[in-house]
């Protein structure tokens, strides 16, 4: 087997493994915040590795088969990773804040500083 094909398969395997971990975490964790942990981090990391495998494959196409679409594909994929990293983080922050404002308390939490702050603000208003 070609060494580059092997690299592409290894990168794909790592990416798929982390996406699988994200799904299992989504099913196993107790509340919205811990599920967001599993989902956001692992799927972004997995998507980075899947995209890296595409970059390796298409750059190989570009340099060996001299196929110009390989170069443009790899640039598009790198831009997609950047956009994905930013939107994934921002989206999960929005979901977490919406859930907190809606009244979802973190399950099994040992400390909740945000609730203490809101309690103090209510005291001050009264």
């Amino acid at each position: 087997m070609d060494i580059l094909t092997l690299v592409v398969y290894i990168l794909l395997g790592i990416g798929l493994f982390f996406n699988l971990v994200g799904i299992i975490g989504l099913l196993r964790f107790p509340d919205v915040y811990t599920r967001l942990h599993a989902e956001t981090k692992t799927t972004t990391f997995g998507a980075i590795f899947i995209s890296l495998s595409i970059v390796v494959h298409s750059l190989h196409q570009y340099f060996h088969a001299n196929d110009a679409s390989g170069l443009s594909l790899s640039i598009h994929v790198v831009l997609a990773i950047l956009v994905l990293a930013f939107t994934n983080a921002t989206g999960s922050h929005a979901i977490a804040q919406a859930a907190y404002n809606r009244g979802q308390k973190p399950v099994r939490a040992v400390v909740d500083k945000l609730a203490e702050v809101e309690f103090l603000e209510k005291e001050a208003e009264e």
């Binding site: 982390f18 971990v21 299992i24 975490g25 196993r28 964790f29 509340d31 915040y33 811990t34 942990h37 599993a38 981090k41 692992t42 990391f45 973190p106 399950v107 099994r108 939490a109 040992v110 400390v111 909740d112 500083k113 945000l114 609730a115 702050v117």
Partner: peptide, 19 residues
């Protein structure tokens, strides 16, 4: 990510919100 993966399989979590 490695840390979260381990915690997904073992289930050892101690969550909380801090400042």
């Amino acid at each position: 990510n490695i840390d979260v993966a381990i915690r997904v399989f073992t289930g050892k979590i101690r969550p909380g919100i801090i400042k």
